[in-house]
Design a protein around this nucleic acid. Structure first.
Lengths: 155, 155
DNA sequence: CTTAATCGTTGACTTTATCAAGAGTTTAAG
DNA sequence: CTTAAACTCTTGATAAAGTCAACGATTAAG
């Protein structure tokens, strides 16, 4: 009963019963692959990708992240933050300022135009999220957010 | 009230209140980044990575996937499947057989030793998943699985 | 039979990831 | 105070992953 002859079955349905399809690891990988592809398309008109958007978002959060903190929170290597900030700084969207308490660190803050762009970009990613979650009720969406953050930020 | 002076706050907690931390896109990205790093470590003794493991898993599923189907289900480009199967085939874990119905396609099936290795590998990924989900109850884990698959495989 | 489409494969190219080392700064030990 | 160790950003090298066009073999459509 592996395949029903005469029935046209698409690829995804064919493998929904596989053991892999039940693994959280795989489900998150596929979810984020589809999601970031969609988000990247929506951010393209703003000349942003999910990566640069994430940095811009934290830079505009008012939390004054250092590059080290950006790396840790975004699960990136510190050396990957450098070109990301370089690019945003080159466009006048963020600024590097030496942390007065610790001059080794550089605090990244959004400029006025950075915040303006972030406002638009946030709408784009919100739209992408809405598209992704069309199959879930509002309550389910909040449940998902809660469960995911308890995994992503578990002690 | 951005920072409480005198209090030592770790990086993650500092940014939990950020708008980004509430985005599903970001939460799935971070979850899968941490998860695949952990899974890769657990699979390393078996000379597998999450990628090769996923291919091996579907090859051993009894569903007889073609390379095209592997690519679609795993959200990869067909050209990325080639070296993955090459490597597994070179280790005698899977076989390429021409699809009798359509000789353009090649069906990937696990060999006996492939299935033996998959059994061990599956235990490793199950352990990784268990570690990731320590903060969630069994019921919550099933809820998460359901919600994620409805996003990952939405029509 | 001819044309168009599909599958696996190759190759070129860009992006992302990983890791070591260096310059400047801060912290801790003596 | 001074010296050594630890930390932050940066650079550079290298590997891995992602993207895309094109080709031979095969199948489907007209």
């Amino acid at each position: 009963m592996a395949t029903k002859p005469g029935t046209t079955m698409n690829t995804i349905d064919r493998f929904l019963s596989s053991e892999l399809a039940g693994e959280i690891e795989f489900l998150t990988a596929r979810t984020r692959s589809l999601g970031s592809a969609r988000a990247n398309k929506l951010l393209e008109p703003l000349d942003l990708k999910v990566r640069s958007y994430s940095v811009l978002s934290l830079a505009c959060s008012g939390l004054a992240p250092t590059q080290r903190e950006l790396a840790e929170f975004l699960s990136l290597d510190p050396s990957q933050i450098v070109p990301l900030v370089d690019q945003l700084e080159g466009r006048g969207l963020v600024e590097r300022t030496a942390d007065p308490n610790d001059r080794r660190s550089k605090v990244i803050t959004g400029t006025t135009s950075g915040e303006q762009l972030y406002t638009k970009a946030r709408k784009a990613t919100a739209e992408g999220e809405a598209v992704a979650m069309t199959n879930l009720s509002k309550a389910e969406q909040e449940t998902l957010r809660d469960l995911l953050s308890r995994i992503a930020f578990r002690d």
